[in-house]
Simulated scan of single mutants.
Amino acid sequence: MGNTFCLFCGCIGQSHVAVVERWGRFERLAQPGFNFFNPLAGEFLAGLLSTRLSFLDVRIETKTKDNVFVQLLCSIHYRVIKESADDAFYELQNPQEQIQAYVFDVTRALVPRMTLDQLFEQKGEVAKAVLDELEKVMGAYGYNIEHILMVDIVPDPSVRKAMNEINAAQRMQLASVYKGEAEKVLQVKRVEAEAESKYLGGVGVARQRQAITDGLRENILNFSHKVEGTSAKEVMDLIMITQYFDTIKDLGNSSKNTTVFLPHGPGHVRDISEQIRMGMMEATSAHVNTQ
């Protein structure tokens, strides 16, 4: 039910307090429920006050210590103290403007001593400072400040854009570091794999040459024993010439369009065999000397 009144009585709704005057002077507070008034004795209802929780949003524009203009959206929750409703009725004509003025005063004194980062980190402290000041001041006027919330902090659009660009640049720098480290690892692994491949290739070539040498030695010995009157030198020359002609044949049968110029003739074949023989003799001599 709402508030209803007649000449001698009235019904005051819940969460309301009525101010009763007598001959123009404050007489008493009428609590919620049915109340009698005596207009013959000069009593009449001067006004009503709501004791519900009220909200006031205040937007403050100020500057931080690092010269950044910001807008702060502050939400104040307050209510009338029932026992001091007469002070709230008579002392303040516009309580919202009074609260707003004190919020401006406290925030514009505190925020300029903080940087923008500190303001974001310590916005709870700003709200607490505003709450302490308002409780001390508005309590004398019959108002109780329940909560103060620092809802939003909005820097200038150009500052927000710059902050986003700085954040993006830092993330790109970090990504570049990780990418460089990954490429470094891949490069090291690639070099290690190449080195391992070359090592294994060298081992394979060495084993191949060892097998060829062993095969040639065995062929030379068998041929020398089976064919009388032949020496190891003659058998070696015959094998070298055979290998030489096989190589020429392989080059001719190759499908690639490759031209190779080689000196060819009996003298050149003899020179090649002499070079091979000398190389093998030097290798054998070096092997004996090391033993």
Rank of each mutant, 00 (worst) to 15 (best):
Q96V: 06
E183C: 06
A41M: 13
I241L: 14
M114L: 14
A283G: 00
F36A: 14
H287G: 06
L48W: 02
V159F: 07
G180K: 13
N167K: 15
V111Q: 05
S158D: 15
I148R: 00
L40S: 10
G204K: 14
L238P: 03
I248E: 10
V177E: 15
D250H: 10
S176C: 07
L116S: 05
K198A: 10
I148V: 10
D66L: 09
P32R: 04
G267A: 13
E228L: 11
C74W: 00
Y141D: 01
G124Q: 04
A232R: 15
I60A: 02
E228R: 06
S197K: 11
K184H: 08
S75N: 08
K161T: 10
K136F: 05
P112D: 01
T247C: 08
M236L: 14
I166N: 09
N257T: 08
K63Y: 04
A162L: 15
L29C: 06
Y244H: 15
G139V: 04
T115S: 12
K233S: 10
M138L: 11
A140D: 14
R79T: 13
E97F: 09
N222F: 08
T242C: 03
E133Q: 05
T213L: 13
S254C: 09
G47S: 00
I153C: 01
D87Q: 14
R217K: 14
F245N: 11
V288G: 08
G279K: 10
P263L: 10
Q71P: 00
F55M: 09
S273G: 08
A195L: 07
E234P: 03
L174P: 00
E83C: 09
L131A: 05
V58F: 01
V235N: 04
A30Q: 05
I81K: 07
A101L: 08
S75I: 11
P32D: 01
A88Q: 01
I99T: 01
K256G: 03
F55H: 13
M163G: 02
R171F: 07
Q71F: 11
G267D: 10
Q93R: 15
V58H: 08
I12A: 01
S255Q: 13
V205F: 07
E146G: 04
P39N: 13
